[in-house]
Nucleic acid binder design. Structure first.
Lengths: 234, 234
DNA sequence: TGCATAGTTCCATGGTAATCGAACCATTCG
DNA sequence: CGAATGGTTCGATTACCATGGAACTATGCA
């Protein structure tokens, strides 16, 4: 641009954006934002469209290189092709938030759920975001995309908390992932470490699951302990 | 997502993305990436569409809050509403680049032009990007959007180079801007400081404009001097 | 006052792409 | 080998929306 404001032969931003700019496809992509690989059927259900439609969308997404496929038996597992894709989407979510174009489906209405709940197997909600922010700020994790790296300081911190990193590394599951939080629109920690941390919180009796819901109830002592460990200095 | 992979009521990523996902509109947005405010006619020309079409697009973009307007007499000046919008687009450009979905209009074919050329009034091309990277890495400039801030270290650096910062601050022009480089698909330094630096390069006789083109020719001595000042340690 | 330029509104047209039913392949399992 | 489940291909339908011509308003300029 800038160089020649008249010709402005732009690259194919448009085709990529229009790929994301379809309701069903954007839901599919959001579904993949967890970092998990999901099957076509799951994604179709998430997007609320029929199987042919899902298939068509997925082939477009993979064809464009936004999504990667892996065939396992009669299943096809889809995931985001690279973390740049995740970044773009995260940016869009942020922008949507800022523009207030958000449909006010702003996560759970229940205040308990807003505060802390289980997301798959890790901690979400305000406290989850607090933990994430704190870890970042202390330099325990680093990274700009969805995939985070655990720093040396982070290792020490985790071990001091009683997390067994050795056995975690032996598994294939990614150690640290950033998972976008619906209610707060900010990331919290997912991945093996995220799950392990929540386990520790339960083991330490800081918190317990409220049965029947996904809410996680912290005891007064537990929350104080958590906030002491994970200080966030704005 | 994550929390409830079945419902997945996503925010309006889709509507924003589809807004960008139109060829004409994406060209308009790219045209605004310089940070300049442009008129509807200019943008229409850039996008290669008629006046009614341009008007329609612009009203959609402003309606959604992606673009801001300012009425000045019989002109309407458009600019990106905030730097988040710029970030999203920059990300998209990056992704497009990575996906190789780039239309191989990859900037000037002429190697001299690729290496260094004038972009409005500042230095673009590989050397321009070198300067920018170096400044960032030395901590002279900071910022994640298009608008950059000059740090204290940056001030000292600029003054040592003989740039008169005082008179620059008195003008309204932004000091430091990141300008996306077509050929390299990476930012280089624009704004008042960018222009001043190029002036200094000319004054120091490191380089001269090749008349008739936008190419900037560095002498062997000049290039060595430039590379000495602006080291980039990968 | 009149002419030129900048933009917008209205409208008719056309192309593109999302959608789903139905039929079709592939894999797994009993 | 069926039967069931996961996915794809095909074709027809539909809906949306980008587009430009014509007519219109508003600002600037002489």
């Amino acid at each position: 641009m800038h160089d020649k404001p008249r010709t402005l032969e732009s690259p194919d931003i448009a085709s990529i954006a229009s790929l994301i700019g379809d309701r069903a496809r954007s839901k599919i992509l959001m579904g993949l934002m967890t970092g998990r690989a999901l099957t076509a059927s799951e994604l179709g259900r998430a997007a609320g469209v029929s199987k042919p439609t899902t298939s068509s969308h997925l082939s477009k997404l993979t064809g464009a290189g936004l999504v990667a496929v892996e065939d396992v038996g009669r299943h096809r597992y889809f995931r985001l092709a690279n973390h740049e894709v995740g970044s773009v989407i995260e940016n869009l979510v942020g922008l949507a938030h800022r523009l207030g174009a958000v449909h006010v489906d702003s996560g759970p209405a229940d205040p308990a759920m807003r505060k802390s709940r289980v997301c798959y197997d890790h901690l979400a909600g305000e406290l989850g975001v607090l933990v994430y922010d704190s870890l970042r700020q202390q330099g325990c994790v680093r990274g700009d995309g969805r995939e985070l790296t655990l720093t040396d300081g982070g290792e020490r911190f985790a071990e001091k908390l009683g997390v067994d990193l050795v056995s975690m590394r032996s598994r294939r599951r990614p150690l640290c992932l950033a998972c976008l939080d619906w209610s707060v629109r900010r990331p919290h920690l997912a991945g093996a470490l995220g799950a392990a941390l929540l386990d520790r919180f339960f083991a330490l009796r800081w918190a317990a699951r409220q049965k029947g819901t996904r809410a996680v109830v912290f005891s007064a002592v537990g929350e104080r302990a958590l906030r002491a460990k994970f200080v966030y200095r704005a």
